[in-house]
Design a protein around this nucleic acid. Structure first.
Lengths: 197, 197
DNA sequence: GCGGCGATGTATCGCCGCGATACATCGCCC
DNA sequence: GGGCGATGTATCGCGGCGATACATCGCCGC
């Protein structure tokens, strides 16, 4: 998850750890913080895996930063070719099957780097998982409702509403995505039915 | 966090691991699952700490025979006196300062076991943390809005709305809590019922 | 000039919880 | 009478968090 985020941010421009974290907060801050305690080890791991390498010395490509001259021990990372591959690979993957998994958020943040079909697929995947979850909660809630005390019940219902809200959001997004994917009035007769309803 | 949940559930009646997990899903399922991978180690830790003990009513003396090659019995846990203390202690604590911290949900689920003042304090604490967070997001969002691409922006805004929604929820709860808390020695002459469930 | 202090910057440690996995027993239905 | 799903206990590796430890930089007051 963090891996994907790093790949995505570094896809724009090379960055060093601290800066990376600022970007992380700026782009994903609403649902995830990512402390240094995970950032630095992950960077190291990724470097060892070959997705990243150090961009030392000459690069002044760092955009929008104050007048920094990289003379200190800043370690600037950039993507390798394998890293870019890996990024696309991860982006296109549907992401794990857990409803708690916030990897979706990271996927979503980098939707700009993907094709429309992948976007729709991922949005629908996320929605399905949430719907399963919603049904699960509804079922157990219906079965146990009478035994739950007031607060537990309120908690469950609030949670349920959150899930429902996100499902609605996703549905909107999917529709928008579909609408904007409409083939631009090409005179070609529409021979191909696009998969899932 | 899981510790608090276990304490709370065992406060009702002694349970064994599997059952505990079912309850966990039923009462906290909307925001947390708690796998066995955390449940069993936590139980062990808590037992060692003295909050729990085994509620093994019968037949423990048969230790001599090496013949029991299988036959793992259910391990039923119950709270010790210290465990009950610990529960109250944890319940009354305001819970850590992180906005991601879902310990609040566990607190809330066991509000029935606490006094009204503690409830209000915890609700307000949670709300404060969310408000801080909301302001932080708003600020960075205002500053970086123009540089963010469409999807990132949408993500941030959705997240922001979620936070706002929860703040509203909490505010309602606080008001309800305040209203239903009978202020000591204030003879308000308005006995009208508000139709609270 | 100089001393403090907050922002920038890299890095590690211990803990917690998750998902996967392994293994064993029970009970019900075909 | 046997298969299979629910019940049940337990462990492992890993990803992420919060705290912490150090450095350096740049700006402020004095």
């Amino acid at each position: 998850m963090l891996e994907l985020a790093i790949l995505g941010l570094l896809h724009g421009s090379p960055l060093h750890g601290y800066e990376l974290r600022q970007r992380l907060k700026a782009t994903l801050g609403t649902f995830r913080a990512f402390s240094y305690g995970s950032l630095y080890p992950t960077l190291r791991r990724m470097k060892e895996a070959g997705w990243l390498c150090e961009d030392d010395g000459n690069a002044e490509v760092v955009a929008g930063a104050p007048a920094l001259t990289g003379r200190r021990g800043k370690v600037v990372y950039k993507l390798t070719a394998e890293g870019k591959e890996r990024f696309q690979e991860l982006l296109a993957e549907a992401g794990p099957t857990s409803w708690e998994d916030e990897t979706f958020g990271v996927h979503f943040a980098f939707f700009g780097q993907t094709d429309p079909e992948v976007r729709v697929r991922i949005l629908e995947g996320r929605r399905s998982r949430l719907e399963e979850r919603r049904e699960g909660v509804r079922t157990t809630l219906a079965r146990t409702r009478s035994r739950l005390d007031r607060y537990t019940l309120q908690l469950q219902e609030h949670g349920l509403e959150s899930v429902e809200r996100e499902v609605r959001w996703l549905t909107e997004l999917i529709e928008t995505e579909r609408r904007s994917t409409v083939p631009p009035a090409v005179p070609t007769p529409n021979p191909e039915e696009r998969g899932a309803p």
